[in-house]
């Protein structure tokens, strides 16, 4: 990636809004009253009556308290949840481009497996830990193609793998590396590359950029925004970085204690936040260059650390 700083910094909004609105009014995923419980000794009701509609080509940001159920919700969309997690109510419908509606919660076995890979790609939270430690990056990337694109030959696989690495800013010469030889951010980028490999219709990304510096982060977001214009996929982007979400998202959902407490366009959320927790979130980002505000080190109060 050899773009100049200026290009990277100013491009994001033009890429996001470029070529007319990318998001179409046509839904790609509808979630209705989804309820997910961890059935442990003291059951945890992690997602409570969550409803949302995701449109084709839309970027939906998902923010919220730590432990508020974001990851659990993301797993539910894909039926990736494992016991003791159980979906106790609600529905998830995927509106396929070619084959109509799919009742995701009714899928099982082979059809569920195919659905997951070809329709929805997921970058897991803690992705930097989800590479296989004993297999090289090259083998893992190419394996995706061997399994899901059997018609590709070895040269094509190699070419496509290197192309994906370049896309996320990892030097393709590092393709033979093993996970432990890569930095945290490089591992995250490899996982993003794998999610992009099969041109999914929906990408769910759970804290995919926690280990990336802001320059690389911006370059990758720019690629994702560009690709969704080109390929029209929708993205659910989970992060605590609200300033970043505001820049890239069409709409933003805010979760707290298992509930979606606010869901609106990034503009409405920024100019007229309704829920007190949203206001609190917006108000608690220390300004980079402004005065230090409430969170100056000297200004802590013992209560705050509770």
């Amino acid at each position: 990636m050899s773009k100049s700083a200026e290009q990277i910094v100013t491009d994001l909004e033009s890429v996001r809004s470029g070529f007319g609105a990318a998001a179409s009014p046509e839904p790609v995923l509808t979630v209705r009253d989804l309820d997910i419980v961890y059935e442990v000794a003291e059951p945890v009701h992690a997602v409570r009556r969550a409803s949302l509609t995701l449109h084709r080509g839309e970027i939906l940001g998902l923010a919220g308290e730590s432990g508020s159920g974001k990851t659990t919700l993301a797993y539910g969309l894909n039926q990736l949840h494992r016991p003791p997690a159980r979906i106790i109510g609600g529905s998830v419908t995927f509106h396929g481009q070619s084959d109509g509606d799919v009742d995701v919660l009714a899928l099982e076995g082979e059809s569920l497996r195919t659905f997951r890979w070809s329709r929805i790609a997921m970058v897991f939270q803690g992705a930097m830990n989800s590479l296989n430690p004993v297999i090289s990056v090259k083998a893992q990337l190419e394996d995706v193609f061997t399994t899901h694109r059997p018609q590709m030959d070895a040269a094509e696989r190699r070419h496509r793998s290197e192309e994906l690495l370049r896309l996320v800013g990892v030097d393709p010469s590092r393709i033979t590396a093993f996970a432990h030889e890569l930095s945290g951010g490089m591992r995250q980028r490899v996982m993003i590359a794998m999610a992009l490999a099969l041109d999914p219709e929906l990408m769910i990304m759970d804290e995919p950029t926690t280990a990336l510096d802001v320059v690389v982060q911006r370059e990758i977001l720019q690629e994702i925004l560009r690709l969704r214009q080109e390929l029209g996929f929708a993205v659910v982007f989970i992060t605590h970085d609200l300033p970043m979400l505001l820049e890239i998202s069409d709409r933003i959902a805010v979760m707290r204690q298992g509930e979606i407490v606010e869901l609106d366009t990034a503009e409405n959320l920024y100019f007229a936040p309704k829920h007190p927790y949203t206001r609190r979130l917006l108000g608690s980002f220390p300004s980079l260059t402004g005065s230090t505000g409430d969170f100056v080190r000297a200004g802590y109060s013992p209560e705050e650390t509770r």
């Binding site: 033009s14 802001v214 300033p243 505001l246 100019f271 505000g293």
Partner: peptide
């Protein structure tokens, strides 16, 4: 320069103008 900052972002500056309101002071 790459740190996200909605207050100086083109999208929100334009929106403020469209709404005819100043940029919100969330702090």
């Amino acid at each position: 320069a790459a740190a996200p900052e909605p207050a100086t972002n083109q999208r929100f500056l334009a929106e403020a103008q469209r709404r005819g309101v100043p940029m919100p002071d969330h702090l």
